[in-house]
Design a protein around this nucleic acid. Structure first.
Length: 508
RNA sequence: GCGCCCGUAGCUCAGUGGUAGAGCACUCGGCUUUUAACCGAUUGGUCGUGCGUUCGACUCGCACCGGGCGCACCA
C-alpha cells in the first residue's frame, strides 16, 4: 500500500475518494456530466419494477428459443456485462441475471446514442417485451431505459474476478457484487440465525439482550477490550460472554432464555478468530448437561437441514454427517482411544506430567493435572474429531462455572461439541451452589492477581444473585460464525462475516 | 507476539542486475442476434514506502507499512 503525492491513502484497489482521480474514473465522470447536460438525472429517486430477474427466468422457463412475446415487463439492477457494443446487456439484481436486448428496431435514436454513456457497474431500469433468443437466452427487448445510478469506479475483471484477499476484505462491497458466493454465504448466515431463533422461540425460549458494556468482563477466559464512559469517568469493558447475565435472568425467574449477540475478545486474528464475533448462549432451568446434549444435537441437525437442505454436508473435503447419532465420549476415554494412555490411572500431577512428556505435548502453560489432561486432549484428540462428537466430563480446574460431576471425583459436568477438528459448542450443568461458585471465582481472582490476563474477575453481584437461589440449569454457548463456516464450507471466519476486522491503512 | 511467504497497470498475472510486459478492462474505429462476442488501433505504471549497495535496482541488503499462511492465545 502506498501513499499518493496528494496524501490520499491508496490500497491494492482504489479507494473512492474525491481526490483519488485516475483516468478510468475521469472517463466515467465525463459520461456523468454528459448525462446531466442532456437533462438526465444520473441519480434519480425511484423505479417501478414489475419483476425480479429470477422470477422472470422461472416464469418463462418453458419459452422456446426464438420466441417473441408481447409481455411487457420492467426490471432494474446493476449492469454487469455488455456485448456487441451494448446490443446485449447483462442486468443483475438480487435474484439473478436477465439479458437486455437493445436494438435499433425498438429504441429511439437518442436512447441508442445514450447507451454509450453507460458503464459496467451502473444501475439501470429497463422496460420492454419478453423474448428468448435463438441461442436460448431469455431477454427483454428494450423499448425504454433509465439510468438509476452512475458508477464511478471500474469493476474488477469480469472473468478473473477479485481474488486479492486484502482487497476483498477491505472493500467487501466489491467482493459481494463481483463474487456471488460471498452473498450466498451471508444469506446462509442469516438463514442460520433465523432457523436458530425459530427453533428456540418455538420451544418457549425468550430472547433477552444483556449489557455489552460491563464493569467486569466475566464468563470466559479471555482478554477484554477496554473503553471509557465520559460522564461517569468510568473504565468499562466490552463483554467477552453473555453467560453471567443470562444466568442472572434464570435467578430472576425466567426459565428459558437466550441471546444471539456480539462478543468482543481482545486476542489475535486468524482464520478462526475475529475480534468481534457472534455467540448464541441459552439456558434452561431444571435440565442437566445430558438433556442439553440431546437438545443441541436435535437443534443443530434441524438447522443444518433447513439451511443447506441436508443433514450431511461437505467441509474442507470431509463429508460431515449431522444426521447419525453423535458420539459422546469422556475426555479421558477419548485420550485413551487415541493415545493408549490412561489418565484415570494418573491421578497425581507428576503422573500426568509424565504422560504428557511421553506424548511430547507442550504443558509449559499447564500447572494442574486438569490443565495437563486438557492440553493432551487438545493436542492429540481434537484434530481427529471430524464427525460431530460430544466430549464430556472435564477436569474441574478448567471449568469455574460448571457443577461438579455427580459421581466422578475431580470432574465437572461439562461437554464440548467438536466438528471438523474444531470446537463448536461448550455446555454444562450450570454451577448453582453459591459457596462452591465463590471458591471457584476466588481461585480465578487469585490467578488474575498473579498476572493471568485471561482469568475471570470476581463478580460479586453474580455471586449475590446466586445466593438468592438458582434452580438446576443447563446452559450452552455456540459460536455462530464457526457454525456458519461449517454450513457454507468456508475456510476463514472472515468469509462468514460481512465486514471482518481489518487493520486500517496508515495515514501518511 | 514469533516464523515463513507475498506486495508490478483498474482486475488477473509474467518479469530475479542492463530501456517496465501480457490478457482482460478503458478510449477510438469497424462489425452487428451476442454468451469471456469478434476484428483493428491506441492509452494506461514514481514496480507498497524510505534508506543503502552498485556505473546501473522491479531485481540485492536493511528498516518501515499492508497482507497471507502457520504457531501461540482462544470460540
Amino acid at each position: 500500500m502506498h501513499t499518493k503525492a496528494d496524501g490520499v491513502v491508496s490500497g491494492g484497489y482504489p479507494l473512492s475518494s474525491e481526490q483519488d482521480s485516475n483516468r478510468l474514473r475521469d472517463e466515467r465522470l465525463r459520461k456523468l456530466n454528459a448525462l446531466r447536460q442532456s437533462g438526465t438525472n444520473p441519480y434519480p429517486y425511484k423505479f417501478g419494477r414489475s419483476h425480479l430477474a429470477g422470477a422472470l427466468q422461472e416464469k418463462y422457463a418453458d419459452l422456446a428459443p426464438g420466441t417473441e412475446t408481447e409481455d411487457v415487463v420492467s426490471v432494474c439492477g446493476r449492469i454487469m456485462n455488455e456485448r456487441n457494443t451494448w446490443m446485449f446487456v447483462d442486468l443483475v439484481d438480487e435474484s439473478g441475471k436477465i439479458q437486455l436486448f437493445c436494438h435499433k428496431e425498438s429504441l429511439s435514436e437518442d436512447d441508442l446514442k445514450q447507451l454509450k454513456l453507460l458503464d459496467k457497474g451502473d444501475f439501470l431500469g429497463a422496460t420492454g417485451t419478453i423474448r428468448r433468443t435463438k441461442a436460448g437466452e431469455l431477454s427483454i427487448k428494450v423499448k425504454g431505459y433509465e439510468i438509476l445510478g452512475k458508477s464511478l469506479q471500474p469493476l474488477p475483471d469480469s472473468w478473473q474476478g477479485l481474488t486479492d484477499v486484502e482487497a476483498r476484505y477491505r472493500h467487501r462491497y466489491v467482493d459481494m457484487l463481483i463474487n456471488p458466493h460471498v452473498r450466498d454465504t451471508l444469506r446462509k448466515r442469516a438463514l442460520t440465525i433465523r432457523a436458530i431463533r425459530q427453533y428456540l422461540d418455538e420451544r418457549g425460549y425468550l430472547e433477552i439482550e444483556t449489557p455489552v458494556l460491563q464493569v467486569e468482563a466475566g464468563g470466559a477466559d479471555a482478554r477484554p477490550f477496554v473503553t471509557h464512559h465520559n460522564a461517569l469517568d468510568l473504565e468499562l469493558f466490552m463483554r467477552i460472554a453473555t453467560e453471567l447475565h443470562l444466568k442472572r435472568l434464570i435467578v430472576g425467574g425466567f426459565e428459558r432464555v437466550y441471546e444471539i449477540g456480539r462478543i468482543f475478545r481482545n486476542e489475535g486474528i486468524s482464520t478462526r478468530h475475529n475480534p468481534e464475533f457472534t455467540m448464541l448462549e441459552f439456558y434452561c432451568a431444571y435440565g442437566d448437561y445430558n438433556e442439553m446434549m440431546d437438545f443441541t444435537e436435535a437443534m443443530l441437525r434441524s438447522v443444518a437441514q433447513s439451511v443447506t437442505g441436508s443433514a450431511s454436508l461437505n467441509y474442507a473435503g470431509n463429508v460431515i454427517d449431522f444426521g447419525k447419532p453423535w458420539r459422546r465420549l469422556r475426555m479421558i476415554d477419548a485420550i485413551k482411544d487415541v493415545t493408549g494412555r490412561d489418565f484415570d490411572k494418573a491421578t497425581e500431577v507428576e503422573a500426568a506430567r509424565q504422560i504428557a512428556k511421553e506424548l511430547k505435548v507442550d504443558i509449559s502453560q499447564a500447572e494442574t493435572r486438569g490443565a495437563m489432561v486438557n492440553e493432551v486432549f487438545e493436542t492429540c484428540v481434537e484434530p481427529t474429531l471430524i464427525q460431530p462428537t460430544f466430549i464430556i466430563d472435564y477436569p474441574v480446574e478448567t471449568s469455574p462455572l460448571t457443577k461438579v460431576h455427580r459421581s466422578r471425583e475431580g470432574e465437572v459436568e461439562r461437554f464440548e461439541l467438536f466438528v471438523a477438528g474444531r470446537e463448536l459448542a461448550n455446555g454444562y450443568s450450570e454451577l448453582t451452589d453459591p459457596e462452591d461458585q465463590r471458591q471457584r471465582l476466588e481461585e480465578q481472582a487469585r490467578k488474575k492477581a498473579a498476572g493471568n490476563l485471561e482469568a475471570m474477575p470476581l463478580d460479586l453481584d453474580f455471586l449475590l444473585a446466586m445466593e438468592y437461589g438458582m434452580p438446576p440449569t443447563m446452559g450452552i454457548g455456540i459460536g455462530i460464525d464457526r457454525l456458519v463456516m461449517l454450513l457454507t464450507d468456508s475456510a476463514s471466519i472472515r468469509d462468514v462475516i460481512a465486514f471482518p476486522t481489518v487493520k486500517p491503512l496508515a495515514k501518511s
